[in-house]
């Protein structure tokens, strides 16, 4: 079980003389990833989802809040003492082309971390060979074909599978997949998503899935939870199927409304919603961060930030004073309205 409480993160950029500015990436995010579970963070670029993944993987220092890995508050430990905890969380990022060393064969890419692992855990050398083949089979690759090859000799989908196999060499508890299929050919994406889903079942590994492509989040498991991030805050949170079928926060509704409709196969949802204006990151509204763009905002929304909760007896958590279920997602053509 991995838990985050009140995670905050601010970036300071220096854009020339006097032009330094502060960007708030995360504004107190709480989350929990149960063992073997699936949690997805969705939102647009700049919403903080990638920063959150990097903090979890230990690639970005934690600033505020606490991170609890297997009942230990990692944020209270010295950096050196954190390492074994962060090893349990492995990051798979979007570009399998740059994630692998082009001068090394897949065999050496996998074998080196496994040798280290064998030395750490007192396993024999024979385990390294067995595990190399086992992991490749697990990710759906033919060891005989893949092992002697270099990354450039493999397709994007195969490379991403190698990246996943490498992440598994350290026996992680969580795979953080940040846009892990966005650079993969469309006809192969579902294969990678199905692999993540099956790894949850076979290894009990949990998946934190970070994406702007909302539909893909469903495919790592229908039991998954969905967190909708907007400008560093969670605005809606609940079972993925619940949030997608009946979102209650206007931002979630605008985001889902923007997803292309496959006309011919689908019809637009009846309540499709468009924000009043584009995002202006320079604005720091005192109340709800979405208020300037929200079609339903009232004076009360500009007063103070709404808290994540179940105001209005909704099934899912949300941070809106006026939650209302709207049907914004495309419906199959020939059915519904």
């Amino acid at each position: 079980m991995i838990e985050g409480r009140g995670i905050t993160k601010t970036f300071h950029t220096r854009g020339g003389m006097l032009a330094s500015k502060t960007v708030t990436a995360l504004r107190g995010v709480d989350f929990a990833i149960p063992r073997g579970g699936a949690v997805s963070f969705i939102g647009e670029s700049g919403c903080g989802k990638t920063t959150l993944g990097r903090i979890l993987a230990g690639l970005e220092p934690l600033e505020g809040g606490s991170l609890i890995i297997d009942n230990v508050d990692v944020s209270a430990l010295k950096p050196k003492a954190r390492e074994p905890y962060f090893r349990k969380i492995q990051l798979i990022h979007q570009d399998p082309y740059s994630a692998l060393n082009p001068t090394r064969t897949i065999e050496s890419t996998l074998r080196d971390p496994l040798r280290l692992r064998a030395a750490q855990t007192g396993r024999p050398e024979s385990w390294v060979n067995e595990q190399t083949e086992h992991l490749l089979s697990l990710v759906g690759l033919n060891p005989g074909y893949v092992l002697p090859r270099y990354p450039h000799q493999l397709s994007g989908g195969m490379r991403q599978r190698v990246v996943i196999a490498r992440a598994l060499t350290v026996e992680p508890e969580v795979l953080v997949a940040d846009e892990a299929v966005s650079m993969i050919d469309v006809s192969l994406r579902l294969g990678i998503l199905a692999l993540l889903r099956s790894l949850r079942e076979t290894l009990g590994v949990s998946v934190l899935f970070i994406t702007h492509d909302v539909a893909t989040a469903r495919y790592i498991g229908s039991d998954g939870e969905l967190y909708v991030l907007y400008r560093g805050s969670v605005v809606e949170r609940g079972a993925a199927e619940t949030v997608l079928a009946g979102p209650v926060h206007p931002y979630t509704q605008c985001l889902l409304s923007a997803i292309p409709v496959l006309h011919g196969l689908e019809k637009p949802g009846p309540d499709r919603l468009v924000p009043n204006e584009p995002l202006d990151e320079r604005k720091e509204p005192p109340g709800c961060l979405f208020e300037p763009r929200c079609p339903f905002a009232t004076a009360a929304c500009a007063q103070r930030p709404p808290q994540l909760g179940r105001l209005g007896d909704t099934i899912q958590d949300h941070a809106c004073l006026y939650p209302a279920t709207r049907h914004v997602v495309a419906v199959p053509a020939g059915h519904g309205h």
């Binding site: 469309v186 006809s187 192969l188 994406r189 579902l190 998503l193 492509d213 909302v214 539909a215 893909t216 469903r218 495919y219 229908s222 997608l244 079928a245 889902l256 997803i259 496959l262 196969l265 997602v329 495309a330 419906v331 199959p332």
Partner: peptide, 12 residues
Amino acid sequence: LIHAIPRLTGDI
């Protein structure tokens, strides 16, 4: 290709 597109509704 069309069957391979992740969708927001329907059986995954």
